[in-house]
Amino acid sequence: MRFEPRAPREGINVSATHPLREAALLVAGVSAIFAALILVVGWSVEWAVRWIPPELEARTFGDWAHHLSSPEHEAERLAVEALARRLAMHWPGAPYEFQVTVSDEPEVNAMALPGGTILVTKGLLRESQSENELAFVVGHELGHFRNRDQLRRLGRGILYELTASALFGFNATAPEVTGFLGQMADRGFDREQERAADRFGLELVQAEYGHVAGAGRFFERLVSRTSGLGDLAAYVSTHPASSDRLEDLRDYAAERGWRREGVLQPWTRSD
């Protein structure tokens, strides 16, 4: 037998594709899938929201958020709930029986939950310097209910989670991907939704008090304090671009000829 030494051949077991080219192709492909996913989820949610009547939503989610409220805030909870219902009187045919839940968090935040529950944080109540100011924040959340943003957010969150885990559940990258998608879904509402809710909130404040004084005050403080955000960070992250919105509110009030000066109702601040 003859043994003839040969050098091992290269280029068979290793692809010639440059790693960066490979990276570009893969990122483009996966981005296309994500874009399609976001579109499809967006469409299905729009479609579902149109077909689920508010009454069904209210019955389904009824008072699930009731338990979130801690009993020591009951007096405040009732006060905010009364305010919310007073504001809702200016929304004829509101399909929800609005309820308020006070959460213990020190961050300033408010949220519309499916079924007609408005969640306000302890931090928000502490930060509010007049009833008018708080009324605008509550009115803003009522605006989300009117446009059914809360249901959209819920639907989007569920669909993203489901599709992502169905698609990538088995994959090594899955936690990062689902985490990212979840973050995107959790970013809250987009600029248009916020603007619509702002305007509706302002309308309610105008209808209730006959002027819109104090409505923007909350934003003004947010904007002037953006350097040392502190607990306002939460509200800014779910309600972006406060300075733009403040400007839009001023324009909207001026357009309608609403007074921006007036007597503010006191809000008994808690500690």
Partner: peptide, 25 residues
Amino acid sequence: YFKRFLAGLRGILGGRVRSYEPLLD
């Protein structure tokens, strides 16, 4: 991390996991 990232994306799209080939070679 880079190779793992590419392989993770491959796991979504399918196909030759090119980033592992030189490593195993």
